[in-house]
Simulated assay, not measured.
Amino acid sequence: MNTNKRYCLALDLKDDPKLIAEYIEYHQPENAWPQITQNMADAGIVDMEIYHLGDRLFMIMETTPEFDPNAEPQTDEGKVKSEEWETLMWNYQQPLKWAKEGEKWVQMDLIYDLKKVKKLC
């Protein structure tokens, strides 16, 4: 039985084709920042995918049960790189209208699960 957690989150990009193209380029595998990838692994992120349409982003994140989205990176270098990354990404991102103050990625609510429907049939 898989005990991992799944998070589905949304965020908007600034509606500027040049900025959107730059954002996508930063997220290509060959452009990954190693310390950011390490921070995610250290935090308990097992898998992550980000999807794009227009100026909307959708993230699916699978984590260990112990994952704390508010935990600080474990190393000083990790903290510095995380702050650099977040500052850089904020040049491209804008909060959804439903976001709370200071919130970027907003967790979405699950409204349909085929596995649960199948159990009822």
Score class of each variant (00 low, 15 high):
Thr87Cys: 06
Lys115Ala: 15
Met40Lys: 08
Arg56Gly: 04
Glu84Lys: 01
Lys116Asp: 14
Lys79Gln: 14
Cys121Glu: 12
Ala32Arg: 00
Lys104Pro: 09
Gly78Cys: 02
Phe67Asn: 12
Leu9Trp: 06
Lys116Leu: 14
Cys8His: 09
Leu19Thr: 02
Ile60Met: 11
Ala10Thr: 14
Glu25Asn: 07
Gln107Ser: 14
Met40Cys: 05
Trp105Lys: 08
Ile24His: 02
Asn4Asp: 13
Gln35Thr: 07
Met1Asn: 13
Asp15Arg: 08
Trp105Gln: 09
Ile45Gln: 08
Gln28Asn: 07
Val46Gln: 08
Val46Phe: 06
Leu110Cys: 11
Asp68Trp: 11
Tyr92Val: 02
Phe67Thr: 10
Gly54Met: 06
Ala71Pro: 10
Pro29Lys: 01
Gln38Cys: 01
Met48Tyr: 02
Tyr23Ile: 03
His52Thr: 02
Leu19Asn: 04
Glu49Pro: 01
Leu120Lys: 13
Asp68Met: 08
Cys8Asp: 07
Gln94His: 07
Leu57Phe: 02
Glu84Pro: 03
Ser82Ile: 00
Ile20Pro: 05
Arg6Glu: 15
Met1Phe: 12
Gln38Asn: 04
Tyr51Asn: 02
Trp85Ser: 12
Tyr92Trp: 05
Trp90Pro: 06
Pro69Phe: 10
Asp55Ser: 10
Glu103Tyr: 09
Glu66Thr: 15
Leu11Tyr: 09
Thr75Arg: 05
Glu101Thr: 11
Leu9Ile: 09
Gln74Ala: 10
Met59His: 01
Pro95Lys: 11
Met89Trp: 00
Gly44Phe: 05
Val117Met: 12
Lys18Glu: 14
Lys18Ser: 06
Met89Ala: 12
Cys121Thr: 14
Thr87Met: 07
His27Met: 01
Lys119Ala: 15
Ile50Leu: 08
Pro69Val: 10
Gly44Pro: 12
Gly54Ala: 08
Lys115Pro: 04
Cys8Pro: 03
Trp98Cys: 13
Glu49Asp: 08
Gln107Leu: 13
Thr37Pro: 00
Gln94Asp: 08
Glu77His: 08
